[in-house]
Design a binder for these strands. Sequence first.
DNA 1: TTGTAAGCGTTATCAA
DNA 2: TTGATAACGCTTACAA
Lengths: 354, 354
Amino acid sequence: MYNKNDLRNESIYMLEVITTNIYNVSQKAGVSIATVSRVLNNSPHVSAKTKAHVLAVIEESGYVPNAFARGLGLNSMKTIGLLCPNAADSYLAQALSYLEMTLRSHQYDCLLSCTGRELEARIQGVELLTSKHVDGMILMGSTFLESKEKDNEYIRKAAQQMPVVILNASFTCENVYCVLCDEKRATMEAAQYLLDTGCKNILYLYHSKNHNGLNKLAGYRAAYESRGLPVNESLLRFFAQDSVSIPAVRDYLVGLHNKGLMFDAVLSSEDILSVGAMKYAHVLGKTIPGDLSIIGYNSSPYSLCTEPELTSVDNKLKAVSQQCVATLLGVLEGKEMPQKTVFTGELIKRGSTL
Amino acid sequence: MYNKNDLRNESIYMLEVITTNIYNVSQKAGVSIATVSRVLNNSPHVSAKTKAHVLAVIEESGYVPNAFARGLGLNSMKTIGLLCPNAADSYLAQALSYLEMTLRSHQYDCLLSCTGRELEARIQGVELLTSKHVDGMILMGSTFLESKEKDNEYIRKAAQQMPVVILNASFTCENVYCVLCDEKRATMEAAQYLLDTGCKNILYLYHSKNHNGLNKLAGYRAAYESRGLPVNESLLRFFAQDSVSIPAVRDYLVGLHNKGLMFDAVLSSEDILSVGAMKYAHVLGKTIPGDLSIIGYNSSPYSLCTEPELTSVDNKLKAVSQQCVATLLGVLEGKEMPQKTVFTGELIKRGSTL
DNA sequence: TTGTAAGCGTTATCAA
DNA sequence: TTGATAACGCTTACAA
């Protein structure tokens, strides 16, 4: 005896594609839908013979389980939400690529939401993913952390519904996991290298005052401190994210130079800023690294475009990305996972430094 | 009278987050679930008073509709599948960013699948998105088109289930829509510009033999033909995609030079190849554009990194991306949409040409 | 304008 | 090992 559902697709002239469902299959195979479902889900409690038969019917009828129905039953669509401030940014694009590939290799799909950097939009993005019942979410970058603690409430709230992983940022909260590179240390080592190769006045260009941005800045200070030198505050220059472009940075530095600011090295929080510094050197006829040493951050493709190539910090993005996924999937499988995983950056020396 | 579902969440000590459903809301509001559903979907057939009351209850109880159930009922999750060969590629990353932003502004989500360039993986990606019942899919780039017609069967098959849009490629099939930039013409104009500024021997570097790759090559030939000049076949050089890197291109060109191949200009199918050409010029002490003119393709951020900056073809990616979305959503709304939309590229002249 | 109840296509529980 | 059936939470005819 079958229930009413069995008759659904019968003797109807279909105008659209016929969607075979589990009832059709069970009927053709002469078994119940429960058995079909078991076969589908590799349940051990099916005889080999039945299984083979059902599988054959499935193959023949081209049946594909309906993902929505499955999602409704299991309350999961095996989907992870990826929140990215800007998918066009080369660093984030690279991270996105690593995350997606790793997730897919574990049969998880990615729901991508590019939020921009505004808090309000990020909150919306998180809420949207929450409402879509993703299995977990990955926040890409420390952009997601606000300095005011109460502005991070949206993350805590999301973490009550599902595990949250933050890529390259540190945040303490139940069900929130962080995987990052020690950017303070990496920046410190870069600055130390400049100091140790004879530079006295390192201009520090940074484009973000978010958590990581300040962390890197702290690394710069730590380098001077470690060498017993005072920091010249006028060498610390903030360059608003929205207005970052190579010519803008170039012109900005020319302006600083014309105002009489002296510097024999440039360290920056992102490669693109350092490319601007190279343009500045070119405009003023300064040799690199003779007159001016330059170090970037991220070791992105940009660092290979310039002449000479740009010394830059490799922040181990691949390892960080893969660990984000490993941590998230571990949590979903009920394993005990570390709330914080820290990698160490590495200075890649190229032609722009001694 | 309410049905059995009304009692679901009653007097249960919840261990997990309480998920309010439409029944809870209807009960609290003293209306039926149908009315709640109508309010949710902005049906006009609800009195203002009832609507306000239900809305208040929804607000108070923090109710969020279950996306899976909704998907099951409507057979749609308002989600578009994005198939991208490589999200880390700067061109595709930029396209991805435009597509996502445009889709989100229309309340559509993006399911991202990075397939790589292998046919088998791409087929899998398409099938996966099909099985997830996305409302439509966008194939990013002509990578998805195979030269053998039967290898494109997977696209025709997908198009039977849902509308398919291909970004920057041309393909004729019912329910498949193409939005592209005329790359043959753009490449022709770039080559003509080189010929018209005195270059005789333009080395053409290309990284892909897919549909667009051959199109661009045809543009190169057309330029010579338009000027009544013969094409020197030994100036056409293929550089396998997988091995593209700036130093590899540089060394390859040095090799060609050492073999005695003469060229006074380089035109390429992607900026990164042209950056390699600049490195080559630097190694051999050639001045740009004096000894060697160089033109790239895509007008990507890379074109701004070099010294001098790289002349490059702007292929109107933003317009193309936005039109992809407009076309797809138009189709989903049942409108009649053009099967093919063609934009025109533009040569952006910078310092690497006369 | 509102309510009733029948789908939607799975999974999971329990009984056989 | 199998089958019957109750969830899952929503949309939407159709009735009232």
